Simulated assay, not measured.
Amino acid sequence: MPDPSTIRAVECSPPCWMVRLALEEKGLDHECKLLSFTAGEHKSPEMLAKNPRGTVPVLMDGNIVVYETLAILDYLEYAYPQPALLPNTHALRALALTRLHEANNLKQVGMALFSYLMNTKAIDLDPGEVDHLGSFLHDELFFWEYYYGIGQFAAGSTISLADLAVFAYVATAAHLGLELEERYPNLYAFCQRMKERPSVLATWPSVWKQTPYSYLTAGPE
């Protein structure tokens, strides 16, 4: 077994969360060093020496440094192939990889909305802007609701890296008030299955309050 991996992460960041989920799913010993986004710790000299772009997550596996979320997930699957988080048949592997990269669309609309809510004081929040940004999220969720109606997971009956990516963004949106059960029953069922996994229980953001926010409760129809 190699030296334990270390991941530098900002808690509640969906990209950081999906990497932590992958490490847990693979049963890899690791240390997660949480950084303060507001204090700019992700752009400290130490971090910039590892990742000149100043983004997180950053994975250090011994002397190996990997940044960019999909690169980290790809590296973990290559370096530690068991248990596998990509199917071993050509067709299902192709589907899982497609869904994993397709989740970048979910990232773009989700992070635009999440960033607005995170960086805007509550008193300054514009409901119209929240609805506007939320409409793009709803348009994207339409695809994933369909995908998770086909199978329990993104690529068949077994969890893959794609599911970790989707869950991180959808669970974050749900915490911000997105109501899944009636409008997105397939995604709701998927998230309920994920919440029972030890990897999710071990990495659930400790700073999240028990009751979700209501920012996205009344989304556009």
Rank of each mutant, 00 (worst) to 15 (best):
211 T>M: 11
101 H>L: 00
214 S>Q: 14
36 S>V: 09
19 V>E: 02
19 V>C: 09
90 H>M: 12
69 T>Q: 14
156 G>M: 11
112 A>Q: 13
18 M>R: 15
199 S>L: 11
200 V>D: 02
40 G>T: 00
10 V>C: 12
86 L>W: 04
72 I>H: 00
211 T>W: 08
175 H>Y: 06
163 D>P: 09
125 L>W: 10
103 A>R: 05
25 E>D: 03
60 M>S: 15
39 A>K: 15
58 V>W: 13
165 A>H: 15
85 L>T: 03
89 T>A: 02
18 M>E: 14
148 Y>W: 01
214 S>R: 14
134 G>M: 13
203 T>Y: 00
98 T>P: 00
52 P>G: 04
63 N>M: 12
30 H>M: 08
140 E>H: 01
147 Y>A: 15
85 L>C: 04
198 P>V: 03
27 G>Y: 01
119 N>C: 11
44 S>K: 06
195 K>R: 15
146 Y>M: 14
43 K>F: 07
44 S>E: 07
147 Y>H: 14
208 W>D: 04
105 N>M: 07
163 D>N: 09
92 L>P: 06
60 M>H: 12
196 E>L: 14
56 V>T: 08
39 A>N: 13
114 F>C: 11
50 K>P: 09
206 S>Y: 05
148 Y>D: 00
37 F>L: 08
50 K>S: 14
44 S>Y: 04
120 T>Q: 02
211 T>H: 11
216 L>M: 07
37 F>M: 07
8 R>L: 15
192 Q>W: 06
174 A>V: 05
16 C>D: 10
50 K>G: 10
77 E>V: 02
22 A>P: 02
131 D>K: 15
180 L>I: 04
187 L>S: 04
29 D>K: 13
56 V>F: 07
35 L>M: 03
193 R>H: 08
148 Y>K: 00
121 K>S: 15
42 H>M: 01
43 K>W: 08
37 F>G: 01
104 N>Q: 13
44 S>G: 06
219 G>Q: 12
181 E>M: 10
182 E>I: 10
206 S>Q: 14
110 G>K: 08
173 A>R: 00
80 Y>P: 04
39 A>Y: 08
14 P>W: 07
153 F>M: 03
209 K>A: 13
2 P>Y: 07
185 P>S: 00
118 M>G: 07
157 S>G: 12
113 L>N: 01
189 A>K: 06
87 P>N: 00
42 H>A: 02
200 V>Y: 02
177 G>L: 01
25 E>C: 02
179 E>D: 13
21 L>K: 10
59 L>S: 02
146 Y>L: 14
184 Y>D: 01
50 K>Q: 15
11 E>P: 05
213 Y>P: 03
63 N>W: 08
17 W>V: 06
64 I>Y: 08
112 A>S: 14
68 E>Y: 07
124 D>F: 09
164 L>V: 03
67 Y>L: 09
180 L>W: 04
214 S>V: 12
44 S>V: 06
94 A>N: 11
87 P>R: 00
206 S>F: 05
8 R>A: 12
157 S>N: 15
81 P>E: 07
162 A>S: 03
